[in-house]
Amino acid sequence: METVIFTIYALAACGGAIAVMVSQNVVRMAFWLVISLGSVAGLFFLLHADFLGATQLLIYVGGTVVLLIFGVMLTASGPMLTIRSGPGEVVLGGLVGLAVLGMLVFGMLSVDWESQQTRMYSAAAEEGRGERSMGYNPEGEGNTARRLGAALLGVRFDRDLGRNSETLSTGYLLPFEIVSVHLLVVLVGASYLARTKRRRPNPLEESLES
């Protein structure tokens, strides 16, 4: 059953991505992008990353893509909508893409992931971190909001509880806090750029323009 669901989502994700690549109309590209990103969100749910799946839908599909379409509508007028790329570029891009894909897939297929994981696990156990589970704890599948919240608080209850070790596992307090500063700065920058022209002209700029 999981395989069937996976196949549907995977085909939709890849098909959407390929359609984005092939399509020449920007708005249709946006539509295919939505299909692709939405299916990736589905894959996240299948991987028991519920919070991430919902975030993907909310921020990517509902936010970023809407923003992109908004941008298309503000900038697109008739001919701009279907700016075609030259055939040479397409062939070259396609070939390079296939080469990279071939290398990646070859690498991924030739690694024996299961034995890798076992080795890593035993290595972690030797270092005295044997409590670290194999993969994301399947017992608590789906129950990700609280774990993520605690990790963002900087404390890893899922890893450090019931373990008497001197060092704390990686918590994500710093990125969580500093990203807010980043978002503030970025918001200021974006609003500055998108604002209408300033009221009084700057003589320096005009002279440079001419």
Partner: peptide, 14 residues
Amino acid sequence: AVLFVCGIVCMATK
């Protein structure tokens, strides 16, 4: 990997 490559080609050709 397919998503990644599609994205790369998209960046290169669009």
